[in-house]
């Protein structure tokens, strides 16, 4: 009896310590965002003069209006949105088809092909960068949305994830379809696709984030500002605005708003989605 009491107490103490550590970690995680936000509204004198203060003495929101006129931020936003959303739409479809085939259909060379696809994950982008540019150029798609979107229409990670997801689904679903004499396409569209929603949410968020946040790739395939996505604008910021640090931080903060919003919106499905994709 007594030892159990002791144990209960020590468990409680342990719980407190863990809770404290979790809070410290959470504060540390969120701190850079708070610092970015507070510094972005600091007047320049305070940024340079009193960096030890977290909150500004006087608030200066001028950078938030200035940024829209000085950098074509709106255009960049639109470009990023069109690029990322389109990739999500197409890639979910193509990846899920391939993933389904690798999980459920029998064909010659299936495993070999799958391993080959996985291998492409290991290729650093810098290896394929210049030839990729040449191909897109030959296709006449430099500085177009198509040129940005199509090369991203399928990717190894997505195929892998969808395959793992389909592996977790019970087989009798499709078997009953097959017995009914439905074609494989019909089975895929009518039976399998409707079940993909959680996986689609998860993979969709991944793909959206990956493309929205990518820097080198869109920089490579776009020459003009008309098609350049937001991260390229961030690259412009890097150290180029001299001492106007609050301006730079405003840009960084604004550029991360859409992905943060997308995540907060979709996060309800998120963990369960990952659980169902079967990466475990």
């Amino acid at each position: 009896m007594e030892s159990a009491m002791n144990r209960r107490q020590s468990v409680d103490l342990g719980r407190w310590i863990i809770g404290l550590l979790l809070i410290v970690l959470a504060v540390a995680t969120i701190f850079p965002f708070i610092w970015m936000a507070s510094t972005s509204v600091k007047p320049m004198g305070e940024v340079l003069g009193s960096p030890e203060r977290l909150l500004p003495v006087t608030y200066d929101f001028s950078t938030y209006t200035k940024i829209w006129s000085e950098v074509p931020f709106g255009r960049y936003f639109l470009n990023s949105l069109v690029f990322s959303c389109s990739v999500v739409a197409i890639a979910l479809f193509l990846n899920s088809m391939a993933g389904y085939a690798f999980a459920r259909l029998q064909f010659k060379g299936r495993n070999l092909l799958f391993i080959l696809i996985l291998c492409t994950m290991m290729i650093p982008f810098q290896v394929t960068m210049t030839p990729l540019f040449l191909i897109i150029y030959k296709l006449g798609m430099i500085d177009t949305y198509q040129g940005l979107i199509i090369p991203r229409a399928a990717d190894a990670f997505g195929i892998f994830m969808m395959r793992q997801f389909f592996l977790t689904l019970p087989k009798d679903l499709e078997e009953s379809g097959r017995i009914d004499g439905a074609s494989e396409f019909r089975i895929y569209f009518r039976i399998m696709l409707p079940l993909c929603k959680p996986a689609f949410v998860t993979l969709g968020v991944f793909i959206f984030m990956g493309n929205w946040n990518d820097l080198l790739y869109p920089l490579l395939l776009t020459n003009s500002e008309q098609f350049r996505p937001i991260q390229a604008a961030i690259a412009l910021f890097a150290g180029k605005y001299g001492t106007d640090y609050s301006f730079v931080l405003t840009g960084l903060l604004l550029a991360s708003v859409p992905t943060l919003a997308a995540y907060l919106f979709a996060q309800r499905f998120f963990v369960s989605g990952i659980a169902m994709t079967g990466i475990k």
Binding site: I30, P32, L215, Q231, V248, L252, A255, Y263
Partner: peptide
């Protein structure tokens, strides 16, 4: 909270 940095780009996180 822990997932927040994941959804930001590396460029942004690193610069900040």
């Amino acid at each position: 909270v822990y997932f927040l940095p994941v959804v930001c780009s590396m460029t942004i996180v690193a610069m900040a």
